[in-house]
Design a protein around this nucleic acid. Structure first.
Lengths: 244, 244
DNA sequence: GATATCCGGAACGTTCAACGATTCAGCAAT
DNA sequence: ATTGCTGAATCGTTGAACGTTCCGGATATC
């Protein structure tokens, strides 16, 4: 029956999201001169990803596929596919016959995530990178400084993410980039609780500066060392916040 | 039609595949005392994964979802979900409106994969591990020796995969394990062509032994160094084989 | 004869409706 | 208080349908 969907403006959320994210780790991996608009399922996934990242869907929230299906104006099957995408990124967990829930990470998960970060970021920094990539790191540092000057703690957080994303981008590895972007997405899951702590962002700005300087000086070993100590300190801080 | 499928039953492939793989990085991540039988889509995915790994579905093969749907006796939607799972592991690539194909990796992909391996494996080795984990590494080494003694080149390859899997298992990181298992799955994609080369497996057996000994001696730095040189040599070999 | 255009089939993307299976909550029975 | 049952809600899976996109071949044109 065609009249079932008379083009009603049911899905304002979806139509707006036509933004082609130029991020380093876009999931449309087979981009070989192809204009193809992202699939509907993909758009649903990015929308949910966004809502999870900004805290609109706090960890533990149950995502009912039927509710979402008609809230977004898409079929239940499509929502299901979006769930599969998010589940592969560990942003949601699927419990058979019970539903999908926004992932909520425990202390062990925090340690786990930082283990991955230590492996990937340190390795990328050790290998150094082209001047352009290092310039991108510098740009992220400056972005953080500007955000700090403007008192924009929101922008400060994302600048930090850009910084660490730029670090792994040094390796020029497509796979490493996607892994890192997923890890960063996971970190946003428990960043909301940590954001309340004000004295946190101050010192790592200096850390980033130090790391960047070491990189620009060509001393990748020193940069790696500083990064490692930063990661250890950051993990310690996060675990402290989440063991209340 | 599948080439090696004498059993013309409706869905022989699926019913047989009830094997619970005890691997370190089973994809059913939320397994916390839950008996739940894997979803049908998951079973289809593992079946396809297996056929891809053993070369029954060579890279570049087009996977028609309708053909697979009635060959496996499941719905087209289910096959679709299995595709999503495999696509998230980079085992297949989706080309919009054209279909999914078994991933075929080029030289740049080889370098990329080895970049990930360098990051993950070296980091895990550097961090050392509990005696039990090191014992698992030793077990993988012995498994390789036995396979070599028996002239089983098939078992030799899988033993090597177990070895490197055991290396990252040193870090006791769930996420690192799954990443590594996906990387190893990707490696199987271009291992078939390299398997013809006979003189390849000989030397890395000694390498594994050396790495393991360094680990057992507690010299993680030496182990990491040896591993790194092995990975470089292995990448060189693989690229040489694949630039014919 | 070579190039361009058009057209039909094949496969994919998405939707819809339905049925069985599983889980949970509440209530009844012991 | 514990156990067992019943029913509602939701998930898992299926099947069919329609529009869209892509590919290959036939036709038309130069």
């Amino acid at each position: 029956m065609s009249p079932a969907n008379p083009n009603a403006e049911k899905s304002p959320v979806l139509e707006s999201g036509a933004v082609p994210q130029g991020g380093s780790a876009s999931p449309g991996g087979t981009s070989r001169l192809r204009v193809a608009v992202p699939s509907v399922a993909t758009r649903v996934a990015t929308e949910l990803r966004l809502q999870i990242a900004e805290g609109a869907l706090p960890p533990g929230t149950k995502l009912k596929e039927e509710a979402l299906s008609d809230e977004l104006g898409v079929s239940r099957n499509t929502v299901r596919e979006a769930f599969a995408e998010l589940a592969s990124e560990r942003l949601v967990v699927r419990q058979p016959n019970r539903g999908v829930f926004v992932a909520s990470l425990g202390v062990t998960d925090i340690h786990d995530v930082y283990t991955v970060r230590r492996a990937i970021e340190v390795s990328a920094v050790r290998g150094g990178g082209s001047p352009e990539r290092i310039a991108a790191v510098r740009a992220a540092v400056e972005e953080g400084k500007h955000a700090a000057a403007a008192g924009d703690s929101e922008g400060l957080g994302s600048a930090n993410q850009h910084f660490h994303g730029a670090l792994v981008a040094l390796a020029s590895s497509e796979r490493l980039d996607t892994i890192m972007s997923q890890v960063l997405a996971e970190m946003r899951l428990f960043f909301h609780k940590a954001a309340v702590d004000g004295g946190f962002y101050q010192d790592y700005l200096a850390d980033n500066e130090q790391i960047c300087q070491a990189l620009e000086a060509g001393d990748t070993e020193l940069a790696a060392e500083r990064l490692l100590s930063y990661l250890d300190r950051s993990e310690e801080h996060q675990t402290a916040v989440h063991t209340s």
